[in-house]
Amino acid sequence: MATEAREATGVEVVDLAVTPLRDLNQRLHDAAREGGPAHWRIVNPNGAHAVAAGLDAQIEVDVDGHVGYYCAGMNKLATVRVHGNASTGLAENIMSGRVLVHGNASQSAGATGRGGLVVVYGDASARCGISMKGVDIVVRGNVGHLSAFMAQTGRLLVCGHAGDALGDSIYEARLYVRGEVGSLGADCVEKEFREEHVDEVRTLLADAGIDDVHPEDFRRYGSARKLYNFSIDNASAY
């Protein structure tokens, strides 16, 4: 079946209902080292954890269905598209490449990511972009509470609303939200939204393939830089 599918369409099809997850990931890793199919389609993920984790090659992977924890974790170079929902830790520690979810993502999407682009076309729940370190995250819907908690660098763009404590203890990441913000976390403040920021939002939207949202409609949030050094006046915020 898989071979026939590859011959017909050039896409390597792997059915997780019959192929063990470790075999799939090993084949994806081998393909990176030794060359192999450039385009993969994974069917019947049924919420399995760590689907397409640890990729390190310019390949494309489409996943048809809902995935479990840590899908496309540590991704490098590859493009992973999930046609379903993703559970906790989507694209955790992504280094480069693109991870796109045509559904919702659970908590901690893009956590600690160092580069690349994560796009969630639905909603992302709590702690989206927690401790992000350079990744760009674009969410077409809403994000939950404590998003961008301790975010260090990179951009988080939210086309919908953000939950409570956005950007709590944030460092230098830039946050753009189009809708309401439930509340701002410690040391996170609204900042001036200048022309260069409109351009930045426009570029991020274009990268994510979102063309029905106006870049001028966003507001910018970032660090007040008051928690960088200990101050007794801030003791309650530590």
Binding site: N46, G47, A48, G65, H66, G68, Y69, N85, S87, N104, S106, S125, A126, G144, H145
Partner: peptide, 22 residues
């Protein structure tokens, strides 16, 4: 707790699925 548990039910792939808000 996870989608895996629900995925075994008949018609799961067509189900409306969401995460309960805190």
């Amino acid at each position: 707790s996870e989608w895996r548990a629900i995925s075994v039910l008949p018609g799961a792939s067509e189900a409306r699925a969401w995460e309960p808000a805190p």
